[in-house]
């Protein structure tokens, strides 16, 4: 397709929705003039016009699929025959599944913790040097690029050539310079997971950083000054004042990154495709969606496992929302 037909497709797609809202509201206004008394009816029609498109999309793409996926997890490959807990029994026995769960737990433990920690440390450091905002921009930048792009960047960093050859990956060049053998980092089981996690940490630290930077400004400067006058060291201020003060923010960032990590797919798909024992749930699920013509039952079980992972966060969010509404 050339640029014009693409542009026209795009335009039609967007105009469709603009027209819907404009036309429906216009018609409503037009008929209202004729029947001024039916105010309540007009209002309910307007509510429907306002919420219907979004609600239909929400229903089709989120609400219905959640129940459908759970239903499918009890059905066979094609989703036709009820098989009870067969798919779950398969999952428990499957070595790949076990490996994915362990890897996912590793990711959940390492990535949110380190990203939050680095973000907090860097936000603090950047606040006290004159080139802090440049530093923040640089560390934040990976947030803008895709996981696949980041994958290429790091695959290049981890590139491996035989011991005699000139290394073109930076990590191996350093290793060789220090007098060690070059390593094919991504193929060393267990450890390769950490090399993949490093990419995610590299990306998500920026998120933690900007949010902490904003939150740091809310700490009253009197508190900090008072502590300094009392002779508290910077390290003590960090542990005793800043961290307790930012507790809520730390929790929020931790959950955001946790949510992302639970769904991590792109990095692993691009870097190792789950080989060398790096598979996680999302990759395994993608695999089963298409492997051997696709197995919706097994895929659904795996998706459901990811949902179970986010449930505590879901409950906590709803709880907080309820608290907010009360105020």
């Amino acid at each position: 397709m050339n640029i014009f037909s693409l542009a026209i497709t795009v335009l039609i797609g967007v105009l469709f929705f603009v027209t819907f809202f404009h036309l429906s509201n216009f018609l409503l206004d037009y008929f209202r003039v004729r029947a001024t008394k039916k105010f309540a009816l007009e209002n309910s029609i307007r509510v429907i016009i306002f919420i219907a498109p979004a609600f239909i999309v929400l229903f089709i793409f989120i609400l219905y699929p959640v129940f459908e996926t759970i239903r499918l997890s009890f059905y066979d490959k094609q989703g036709e025959n009820f098989v009870g807990l067969y798919n779950y029994a398969w999952a428990i026995k499957d070595p790949d599944f076990k490996r994915s769960i362990i890897n996912n737990l590793g990711w959940l433990l390492v990535v949110p913790t380190l990203s939050t920690f680095f973000g907090l440390v860097i936000a603090n450091l950047a606040d006290r040097v004159w080139w802090g905002s440049i530093a923040k921009s640089i560390i934040f930048m990976p947030m803008a690029i895709s996981f696949v792009g980041a994958g290429v960047i790091w695959k290049f960093m981890y590139d491996y050539r035989g011991p005699g050859d000139q290394q073109i990956g930076l990590l191996n060049a350093i290793t060789v310079n220090l007098g060690f053998e070059p390593q094919a980092w991504l193929t060393i089981p267990i450890w390769n997971n950490f090399f993949l996690m490093a990419i995610m940490i590299w990306i998500q630290t920026g998120l933690a950083l900007v949010i902490f930077s904003a939150a740091l400004r809310t700490i009253p400067s009197e508190t900090l000054d008072a502590a300094r006058i009392d002779g508290a060291s910077e390290l003590k201020i960090f542990w005793k004042i800043i961290i307790p003060y930012l507790e809520q923010t730390i929790l929020v960032i931790w959950t955001i990154i946790t949510l992302l990590v639970l769904k991590v797919f792109d990095i692993i798909y691009a870097m190792t495709n789950g080989q060398w024992q790096t598979e996680v749930l999302a990759n395994l699920m993608y695999d089963w969606m298409f492997r051997g013509g696709g197995d919706t039952g097994r895929g659904s079980v795996l998706a459901f496992c990811i949902l179970i992972g986010v449930t505590p966060i879901l409950a906590w969010n709803l709880y907080r929302h309820k608290q907010d509404q009360k105020v």
Partner: peptide, 28 residues
């Protein structure tokens, strides 16, 4: 706007925020 079921709708938005994309792929 005031309408019946607004709070439930809002709560389902909050819940949908964290529902993983993977849940939707197969049915969609």
């Amino acid at each position: 706007m005031k309408f019946y079921g607004r709070d439930i709708l809002l709560a389902s938005i909050i819940a949908s925020l964290v529902v993983p994309l993977q849940m939707s792929l197969i049915p969609i």
